[in-house]
Amino acid sequence: MAAVTVGPPPARRRGRRRRLPAWHVLWIVVAVAYFLVPIVSLVQFSFGGVVNGHSAGFHWYGTVFADPNFRSSFWLSVQIAIETVVLSNLLLIPTTFWIHLRLPRLRPVMDFVSVLPFVVPPIVLIVGLIPFLRLFTFLYSRPEVLAFIYVVFALPFLYRSLDAGLRAINLRTLAEASANCGGSTWSTLVRVVLPNLRSAVIGGSFLTVAIAMGEFTISSLLSFNTFPVYLFNIGQTTGNEAAALSVISLLLTWALMVSLYLVGRGGRTTAQVAATR
């Protein structure tokens, strides 16, 4: 369909637009293709194959949704993700707040500790953790144990997000102003600091959900049938069904991203907070 332009030409409205050099365009196309081609291939593969002499179409999607193991494994992963988010935030929000406010000397220590999960491979971590977790027999056999482990993996992401959020606000003055108004440390945290950390908490929580929903190694080693383990098992037998599962997983993740963005948009931006400093 032909585009119809109304009003003055773009050059007159916004000044002369500089043309991108050809190699810039090429570079952008390569970068976009790098990410898009696998996704497009995945989607294509999820509709591929022949079933009963006909093109598969949405067959693999129907198979996935009809499988009770899909629902149970997905629900298990969602539960663990929620538990991980709650645990991580409960642990890290007061800790980071307290370190920023009262123990700023510990910040370099926290910075160091928070990157450890990056440098210690999950397999090493879990081999070290298993003897310790076995001490808690009531927990060891339950899938909730995964949430306790994932808190460690989520630490760098949530801590960095909270740390950046707290740096963006004038925490010390706000806390002192709140105390001067009669507010306790708790009311300062809940009524003053947390509302200004909304974006940071949501951003960090989203990454935590992504980790908890996608972690395979530990849940597999501990024999819990989480969504990634289910996905792996399906992939061993039916490639097309695994591709359909991956597409569903991607769509759910994007839906989650959009919803978190919409929730976060209701809060104040860092720039607005900084403007009041």
């Binding site: 003055t173 706000l174 607005q272 009041t276 400093r277």
Partner: peptide
């Protein structure tokens, strides 16, 4: 029971 006004703007941004 004291009221204080700070040098840097100390209003709660939210």
């Amino acid at each position: 029971n004291m009221g204080m006004v700070f040098q840097s703007y100390s209003l709660f941004p939210n």
